[in-house]
């Protein structure tokens, strides 16, 4: 399969948040400020990329040869959890401000279904290593892009005269729905 098609498909056409509806928790929780959204996107990008490559390697070189494929899910979850601990450790040391601003959402990357979903997709779609890398990169760039766009819209919404009943989460969900419709328009891109 063409790498360009895999990348564009993962990033825009089959966007993990707006089309597959995975990773909604950080999408709504950490999208009030664009700097936080970018930080979260960067952390998730790192975790998705490394977790997918590791998942591919574990599945191809350990689980399949020893015929223990049934351990796929638990193996992936533990690898993702270890990666998140590592990311948390690095942020504590090198980016304390980002660590503070991400707060509880940082350890919650472990339970971010986008990460496990990408690792599982890589296996079910039977990608090779290069395709896995391109796919996971596309997914994570798509995730970060949508997080950033949504956060900038929410910042504008804070200044907008929204009626009381729609203020806060309702208007955020309506915005997300309109964004999802807009991303459907990219269907003919690949």
């Amino acid at each position: 399969m063409d790498l360009y098609v895999i990348f564009m498909g993962a990033a825009l056409v089959n966007n993990i948040i707006l089309t597959q509806f995975l990773g909604i928790c950080p999408f709504l929780g950490v999208s009030k400020k664009s700097d936080q959204a970018i930080g979260m996107g960067a952390a998730v990008t790192f975790v998705i990329f490394i977790a997918s490559v590791l998942a591919y390697c574990i599945y191809s070189f350990i689980l399949v040869p020893f015929e223990i494929e049934y351990m796929q899910t638990i193996a992936f979850i533990l690898v993702i959890a270890s990666l998140v601990q590592f990311v948390e450790m690095v942020l504590k040391k090198y980016s304390p401000a980002l660590y503070k601003s991400l707060g509880v959402f940082l350890p919650l990357i472990t339970t971010n279904c986008a990460v496990l979903g990408t690792a599982n997709n890589v296996i079910t779609k039977e990608f090779d290593l290069i395709q896995t890398m391109i796919y996971s990169l596309g997914i994570s760039i798509g995730f970060t892009l949508v997080m950033y766009i949504f956060s900038t819209i929410r910042e504008r919404l804070e200044q907008a005269p929204v009626s009381r009943s729609f203020n806060g989460n309702p208007i955020a969900l309506i915005t997300a729905a309109i964004m999802a419709l807009a991303f459907f328009g990219l269907g003919g891109l690949v």
Partner: peptide, 15 residues
């Protein structure tokens, strides 16, 4: 592997 990263993370001082 998970326990090791968890312990190392806990030992890292919070900013």
């Amino acid at each position: 592997l998970f326990i090791t990263t968890y312990v190392l993370n806990n030992r890292t001082e919070k900013p």
